[in-house]
Amino acid sequence: MASVTARRALRDRVRANRAASAERRTVAQAARRVRTGARSLVTHVIATGADRKTTEGVADALRTVAKKKGVKGRRARIRRTFQGVKNHTLTVFRYTREQVARIAAQYKPRKAEYKAVRAALIAAA
């Protein structure tokens, strides 16, 4: 019979492997979607392999730069549950890889992680 600590160690390793696998799957899926068509800025940033907090920060900054530079994405309508209201319709914008590269070229980040994401976005075009 395995000891309690050995079972815990095994359980923790399985959980860590499962989480890492889910992260790899998310990045691969986002990269495939970006290659096939226009997607949101968040999807483009996820495709670079950035973590969640970095993704949110870079996507917000890219939205600001896009608005300042007048880069317009393709409009799309989506339905989401928002504050308990089902099928709440939102207008979102989808960007091609070339548009994202143009936006990223204008973006001047300060943090090292943000600079790495910027370089990956420019290289992906």
Rank of each mutant, 00 (worst) to 15 (best):
R118A: 05
R32K: 15
A22F: 06
L62H: 11
R39C: 07
Q99E: 13
V27Q: 06
F82I: 08
E98C: 03
T48C: 06
R7W: 07
T36V: 13
Y107D: 02
N17C: 12
A9T: 12
N87L: 12
L121K: 01
I122K: 00
A112S: 11
M1E: 03
A105K: 06
I78R: 15
S40K: 09
G49T: 02
R102W: 00
I103A: 10
R25V: 11
R8C: 05
R39G: 01
D51L: 14
G37D: 00
K53E: 12
D60V: 13
T5A: 15
E98A: 06
V100T: 06
R39I: 02
A28V: 07
G73S: 07
G57F: 13
V85K: 15
V14C: 06
R24Y: 04
S3M: 07
A22E: 11
E113D: 02
L121S: 14
S40M: 04
R39Q: 13
R24W: 02
T36W: 07
Y107I: 03
A59C: 06
V100A: 03
V27N: 00
V65D: 12
I103V: 10
N17M: 14
A104D: 09
K111M: 11
A47I: 02
E56M: 05
A123S: 09
A112C: 01
R63Y: 09
